Simulated scan of single mutants.
Amino acid sequence: MKTGAVLASGVLATGTVGASVKQEDHEVHEGESVDVGDGTVTAYATTNSAEELSSLGVHVDDDALASVDVDESKPHDSVAAHLSFPDAVDTLQFTFVGFHFNPVGHPPPDIYTVPHFDFHFYMMAEDAVEGIPLGVAAYDVPDKQHPSGFVFEDSRLIEPEMGEHLLDGTAPEFNDGEFTHTYVYGAYDSSIDPENPSGVEELELGGETREVPVFEGDGEGRIHFVEPMVTTEFFASLDEEMSVDVTTPETFFTEGRYPTEYVLKPDRSDGVHISIDGFEEFPGPS
């Protein structure tokens, strides 16, 4: 979800992920890295013995985690960066990953307003994502492409250079629990013309009332990213690998293989991994 300015510039990875994420009969392929504080964040993919994609992930090393360790006496800026996946791997519909650190969280208030990381795995070209405007969504997502239990935010806000967020209404943080890690879907209608809104709506943004354009597009949006979110506190306490099954739509915007789980894993030598896994075949629209 929404963060601040980009603070890190991309450089090619040079062996920072390595065998720590490798599973039996799976190969690790490193993508792009960015410097975060004194550390490094790296995108990667794994493939199985049939050379099929088995996971897409991000490795955050210990120095990067320490760089964003939240200390009230030392305020931190938000960090946002786009990371490319390895060129040698067919990443299916996935195009790049957006890495974000949010030192004070983001809305909804008292739910996600704690320090945490967001990992956006996009299924749309990077330049198209960067062209997404601030707005209010007035399109629909087809029922079979809308994951059960996931709900639009009340304002249906389209975050610029990101999209709309569908939140898991069954997650602990919405049912008298607290947010430690969760999964979010993103939606957008790529036919939207940012120069031609269908109207305006008044919203409270950043403590002030603003007129925000309403976008209808051709009336039909689609899921265009999946997003694990993890608090800094939970990452700090992670001592063993855990996988979390996710609710999926019946269909996606095009047939293909899509993730059915996300995995959080401490690196036995340096940092943590988060990945989308369990790729299975899904149909496209009938």
Rank of each mutant, 00 (worst) to 15 (best):
T3N: 11
V6Q: 13
L7T: 15
A8P: 00
V11I: 10
V11S: 12
V17Q: 08
A19I: 08
Q23I: 01
Q23G: 14
H26K: 13
H26Q: 14
V28H: 07
H29C: 13
H29D: 12
E30L: 08
E30I: 05
S33I: 06
V34Y: 12
V36L: 14
D38P: 03
G39M: 08
T40Y: 00
Y44D: 09
A45H: 07
A45F: 06
T47P: 04
T47S: 07
S49Y: 12
A50T: 13
L53D: 08
G57C: 09
G57V: 10
H59G: 04
H59P: 02
H59T: 05
V60C: 03
A66W: 02
V68P: 05
D69T: 13
D71W: 06
D71A: 04
K74Y: 09
S78I: 01
S78H: 14
V79R: 07
A81S: 15
A81L: 04
L83W: 11
S84I: 00
V89A: 05
V89P: 05
T95K: 14
V97E: 08
N102K: 13
V104Y: 09
G105Q: 11
I111M: 05
I111C: 01
Y112L: 15
H116D: 05
F121R: 02
D127F: 04
A128P: 01
G131C: 02
A137I: 06
A137S: 11
A138I: 01
Y139M: 04
Y139H: 10
D140Y: 04
D143G: 13
K144E: 13
Q145M: 15
F150I: 02
V151D: 11
F152K: 00
R156D: 01
L157P: 02
M162I: 02
G163E: 04
E164K: 02
L167Y: 12
A171S: 13
G177I: 10
H181W: 10
H181V: 04
T182L: 03
Y188V: 01
S191T: 15
D193V: 06
E195R: 06
N196S: 13
N196A: 14
G199E: 06
G199N: 04
G206H: 00
E208T: 12
E211K: 09
V212I: 15
E216F: 01
E216C: 01
G219S: 06
G219Y: 05
F225W: 03
P228G: 02
M229C: 00
V230E: 12
T231F: 09
T231Y: 09
T232A: 15
A236C: 08
E240L: 03
E240H: 14
E241L: 11
D245S: 14
T247P: 03
T248F: 07
F252P: 03
E255S: 15
G256N: 07
G256M: 07
Y258E: 08
P259Y: 07
L264N: 06
D267L: 03
V272R: 15
H273R: 03
I276G: 02
E280T: 10
E281L: 05
P283Y: 05
